[in-house]
Design a protein around this nucleic acid. Sequence first.
DNA 1: CGTTATCCTGTCACTTAGTGACAGACTTTG
DNA 2: CAAAGTCTGTCACTAAGTGACAGGATAACG
Lengths: 223, 223
Amino acid sequence: MGSDATNDMTKNERKPGRMSEQRQQRIRLEISREAARLFWEQGVAATTGEQIAEAVGLSVRTLWRYFRNKESCVEPVLAQDGEEFVALLRRWPRDVSLEDHLMEWAINRTKDPDQQAFDQAVIKMTVLAEKEPDVRTAWLMTNDRIERALVEIFADRLRRSPDDIEVRLHAAAATAVVRVISEDISAALMAGADPTSLGNTLGQMARAVHTATGGAVGDPVDP
Amino acid sequence: MGSDATNDMTKNERKPGRMSEQRQQRIRLEISREAARLFWEQGVAATTGEQIAEAVGLSVRTLWRYFRNKESCVEPVLAQDGEEFVALLRRWPRDVSLEDHLMEWAINRTKDPDQQAFDQAVIKMTVLAEKEPDVRTAWLMTNDRIERALVEIFADRLRRSPDDIEVRLHAAAATAVVRVISEDISAALMAGADPTSLGNTLGQMARAVHTATGGAVGDPVDP
DNA sequence: CGTTATCCTGTCACTTAGTGACAGACTTTG
DNA sequence: CAAAGTCTGTCACTAAGTGACAGGATAACG
């Protein structure tokens, strides 16, 4: 007695037949890419779940096991940049300003060709989100998740509670301005703008976050 | 020639059998109330379109003519407070601060009992939006529309273009903080908080908007 | 390497969401 | 009242999404 069997692992309980988290995500992303392609080519309404499933090589039933509805199929693609941004903020050193941190990242950033092709899909979906309501809901849900992540990150950085209303306000405002700038950049790139001016837009993001949080987030803080 | 017949009205083209805009909105609101009630009582998934239609006394076909899908049925209820807020901002005099304007409105506000019962539904849906993904998408879409309205309002007040990125950033940040405060208030009221402290929260909103816009929106501006 | 416990997946049958077409009731303008 | 156009319900239909079950795949363990 006193020992809960099969429960003594510290974390990450991997059971016999379960497939790796990584592989799950890969499949979700694969589905998302195809869904994004089809949505772009023929519109959301004209694209059926069957088409998406077929494009990926899955049964329709399995598709609905990975995504609860058609719109959410594009979320992994839409979340791409946001996740990267959130991951970047998690590594944000306390003694560095946001602008410097983003800039340094922009410089060290590697751009493999596969990634670039993928970025194209992200841009397309972000632009599509302006017009297609179903894609827009997916886009807004994605940003909602980013906001929740930022609450944690900001709380940590400001040494405040994630329940603190001010922290939540800062996270919401920051997410909102980052979203708008993303939309703006996507629209510009789609219109054929020069991508080399991207370093500038990261600075713009940093400044926008600083402004939208009333200066609370962006400057270095004491360790 | 040179005269496009049936097109010479200045605006508001009313055609023979068309019913008034007002009546349309009333029906939408009626549907929304019933949908909100059912969603609250039994959850979204367990509520069918047929149930909503029956509760209102419409055929299912007609229900789908008023709303393109199930989630969006609650949008009119969720939009209630937001629309009021937007209407309030439209009447915001240039020589008055946001805080003063909101406060004055709070004082002159009449509270008839039917309205109060309705507010209860708004609060319930706002709280429900925290957990139920389908209601959350509706809530986010509602706030997205508010944001677009704020772009126009801010552009007008700041005498800038609605396409100006800064104006859009201000609108996005402002909408975001107002949304978070709304969620906070709703949660508090649902938990049984005293509604008389509401005057204070309007001040909080005004200050949050001022902060989130970097001080650009909130102060009086010259006429 | 084989066993075993657990999963992931496909098939099938099913309910619900949502749409197109058409006919009749209704409503506003003249 | 007449005319023109809209709103609504009925019917038939497609597509979205789920529950149940059986077989194949997979990771842990010996």
